[in-house]
Amino acid sequence: MNKHLVPRRVARLISRTQKAMEQELDTRLAPFDITAAQYVVLSTLHSGRANIAAQICKELSYSPGAMTRMLNRLEQKGMIQKAPSVDNRRTVQLELTDEGHHIFPSLLEASGIVIDHYFGAFSAQELQTFESLLLKMSAGK
């Protein structure tokens, strides 16, 4: 058997599954006028993992231009607000608005449904193994 055949199949399965999850999340978030990509940004802000555009770009592997457009759309929807940084005037800090905080639990619930759909059949041990394999893969080893 070709040694590249199985890794290619696995790569296609990962890609196909990721796209299917994103599409299902888009469908579940549509009533809130939020896309899966926008949800990820809101989740990043909500969790406190990042609060400036450059950090979010790094966290999510987005280009600065795409991130600017995404943040502008979220600001227009009233989900986030921008404020000058206290520490650095050239940096803009991002935070959820009251509306963003208000709607986030519903978005989180929709996300949980999708996660349960795809991962609910796995045991805790299987999920730990899967996570370990993904971490090993992302480390390039």
Rank of each mutant, 00 (worst) to 15 (best):
N2M: 02
K3D: 08
H4I: 04
L5W: 00
V6C: 03
R8Q: 09
V10R: 10
V10H: 03
A11P: 00
A11F: 04
A11I: 01
R12C: 06
L13T: 07
I14D: 03
I14N: 01
S15T: 12
S15E: 15
T17C: 02
T17F: 00
Q18H: 05
Q18E: 12
K19N: 12
A20E: 14
A20K: 09
A20Y: 07
A20N: 05
Q23L: 12
Q23S: 05
Q23Y: 08
E24P: 01
E24M: 13
D26V: 00
D26E: 05
D26C: 00
R28W: 10
R28H: 13
L29F: 05
A30Y: 07
F32V: 05
F32K: 10
D33S: 10
I34V: 15
T35W: 05
A36Q: 15
A36C: 14
Q38W: 02
V40H: 13
L42A: 04
S43W: 03
S43T: 01
S43D: 15
S43C: 07
T44Y: 07
T44G: 01
L45H: 07
S47E: 07
S47H: 00
G48R: 00
R49M: 09
R49C: 03
R49H: 12
A50R: 11
N51I: 07
I52C: 02
A53L: 03
Q55P: 00
C57H: 10
L60A: 03
L60M: 14
S61N: 14
S61Q: 15
S61V: 09
S61T: 15
S63Y: 15
P64A: 01
G65Q: 07
G65E: 12
M67Y: 06
T68D: 15
T68G: 14
T68V: 11
R69I: 14
R69K: 13
R69Q: 12
R69N: 14
M70R: 04
L71G: 15
L71M: 10
R73G: 05
R73K: 13
L74G: 02
L74E: 06
E75I: 05
G78K: 07
M79D: 02
Q81M: 06
K82L: 04
A83H: 10
A83Q: 09
A83S: 15
P84T: 01
P84V: 05
S85C: 08
S85Q: 05
V86M: 09
D87W: 06
N88W: 01
V92S: 14
V92D: 14
Q93A: 07
L94E: 02
L94N: 05
D98L: 13
E99K: 13
H101G: 14
H101K: 15
H102G: 07
I103V: 12
I103K: 03
I103Q: 04
S106M: 06
L107Y: 10
L108F: 07
L108A: 12
S111I: 00
G112Y: 05
V114Y: 00
H117V: 04
Y118C: 00
A121I: 02
A121N: 12
F122C: 07
F122D: 02
A124H: 13
A124C: 08
A124Q: 08
Q125C: 06
Q125S: 13
L127D: 08
L127H: 06
Q128A: 15
Q128T: 11
Q128F: 13
T129Q: 12
F130Y: 11
E131Y: 14
L133V: 11
L134W: 11
L134H: 09
L135G: 10
K136I: 12
M137C: 10
S138V: 13
S138E: 15
A139S: 09
A139F: 12
G140T: 06
K141D: 11
K141V: 09
K141S: 14
